[in-house]
Structures are given as structure tokens and as C-alpha cells.
Amino acid sequence: MLPALLVILVAAVLLGYRAISAVPSLLHTPLMSGMNALSGITVIGAIAVFITSPQGGSGWAAAALVLAMINVAGGFWVTERMLKMFKGKKRGSEVQDIPWQ
């Protein structure tokens, strides 16, 4: 499992770096709230531990589950609300600024 974990870690860092660097500052706040939602991915770890743990851990796992789901639902929803506010005049065309000369 370890090699697979390391490969996916490195790949995510490299591909993520490229994708994230290209997000314009215009959308940095929605990017961050979207990242909040993604950090809620911990929910799958919590589900796995909650379901499979024989005893002891499940209370903590349940707490983690609730917190992570707040991130998932809250993060995606607030991002959705925010992005809906970004309206452009020229629908369907690329954003283009004609610089003043």
C-alpha cells in the first residue's frame, strides 16, 4: 500500500500545483471555500473507522464524521452561493479586458 500512497501523494501535489496556480485571484475566495469542502474528505476515513472499529474508537469517529460533513456540505454550498454571484456581461464569451492605451 505504501508505494501507492506515495505515488498518489506526489501526483496530487504536482497536478494540484499546476491547476491551482492557474486559478485567477478573482476566484481565490471560492477556491478557498472549495478547498474547505475538499478537506472534508476526512469523512471517508471517519466512515471507514466508524464502520469497522470493533469498539472504543467509534465515538471519536462519529465526532470526526460530523465535523468533516459540516466541511463538505458547508464548503460546497457556500462556494455554490458565491460563484452564482459572479456575473459577466458578455455571457458565453471569454473574459477580456481591453487595456487602455
Binding site: 474547505n36 476515513g45 465526532a63 470526526a64 468533516a68 466541511n71 458547508g74
Partner: peptide, 29 residues
């Protein structure tokens, strides 16, 4: 919308807490 910074900060914190708790649960389990 004016409160987005604290919202993001709060969710940062919950994400961190969730990760710590999951690992603790896994340790106990």
C-alpha cells in the same frame, strides 16, 4: 459574504479537528 473570512477559518479548524479525531479513533480501534 462579508463574513467569508471567518467562515473559511472556521471550516479550516473543523477540518483539522476531524483529521485529528479520525486518527485518534483509528488508534483506539
Amino acid at each position: 459574504m462579508i463574513h467569508m473570512p471567518q467562515t473559511v477559518a472556521l471550516l479550516n479548524g473543523l477540518g483539522g479537528a476531524a483529521s485529528a479525531l479520525v486518527v485518534w479513533a483509528a488508534l483506539l480501534a
